[in-house]
Write a protein that binds this DNA or RNA. Structure first.
Lengths: 150, 150
DNA sequence: GAATTGATTGACCTATACGTCAGATAGTGA
DNA sequence: TCACTATCTGACGTATAGGTCAATCAATTC
């Protein structure tokens, strides 16, 4: 509670500090409200994810500032959630996407092992989805045929 | 609180009432504990699903008795859960599997419409899984290549 | 007929994933 | 300078998906 706990601002009506040109299509920094709207979630949710250690935005005067990497990370989180992963799983998951470029041998082996497991998991899930899709198509067809006879 | 709230039994050590032959491989009726073990869940979970109106087993002396249809229904529930659906979604979902054989026209049309939505949903989900799988394979390959150079 | 086993309901507890205030702060426009 | 807006940090509330007793009851076994 000493240097950065008061909050501030990063984007609203007319910004002049971190966004000199108003409508530059390919931007590098984002405010929390921007991301929230873009992804259709609330700022509370984004802060909650930070609390769960899923994203780590920079701070400017206490306000969160997100880079393109942070934004991509958020997109990954939401996609994983849509697939049906819990936040705890996603946290584990995101480690695989992290810096494995200059990793130790043990770190590389870890990623190979864990990504293998994740791949198996997802393939199981996809198989179940395919089964379900097959059944739904069959049910649908039955109904359509039945309707045709009326 | 008058005719069927005391509980009873349906299967345990040696049953003589609803299962004359001990080890008949293709059985028709099941107790709650059997199903729980078969699917790797607890009896509490099964009762919870009943409370949520997902399954409706018959009662014999207060004890739940499950038919093959009930068992299949439970399998559907668990598969849907593994895919990432909530119980509320699953409840809606199960209606599609229900009796649409002798349905009214409006009922048939309902199933056609809803199954269409469900199919789209699942296809979106599968696409996301495929994207994720692609990325994971790429990450894994990078790591493996990197390890080979050591 | 008492003990054992497995089933029943109900009440309460837990973890996850947020939503909803409340109070404070910081930058901008009038 | 004052109002306005966006943001911040808690604190508390809520819905979902169950787990964990506790008391009870019923059929079988000893």
């Amino acid at each position: 509670m000493s240097q950065a706990d008061q909050g501030g601002r990063a984007d609203s009506g007319g910004v002049a500090v971190i966004e000199p040109r108003p409508a530059e299509e390919g931007r590098d920094l984002f405010g929390i409200a921007e991301l929230a709207e873009e992804f259709g979630i609330t700022t509370r949710t984004i802060r909650f994810y930070e609390n769960k250690d899923l994203i780590h935005p920079a701070r400017v005067n206490g306000a969160r500032v997100y880079t393109r990497r942070d934004r991509a990370r958020l997109a990954l989180i939401l996609r994983a959630k849509a697939i049906g992963s819990t936040l705890a799983q996603i946290r584990h998951f995101l480690d695989l996407y992290g810096e494995h470029g200059e990793g130790q041998k043990s770190q590389l082996e870890y990623v190979v092992s864990e990504s293998g497991k994740a791949i198996e998991e997802l393939e199981r899930k996809r198989a179940m989805i395919d089964d379900t899709l097959g059944e739904l198509h069959a049910i649908r067809k039955t109904c359509i045929d039945c309707l045709k006879e009326l």
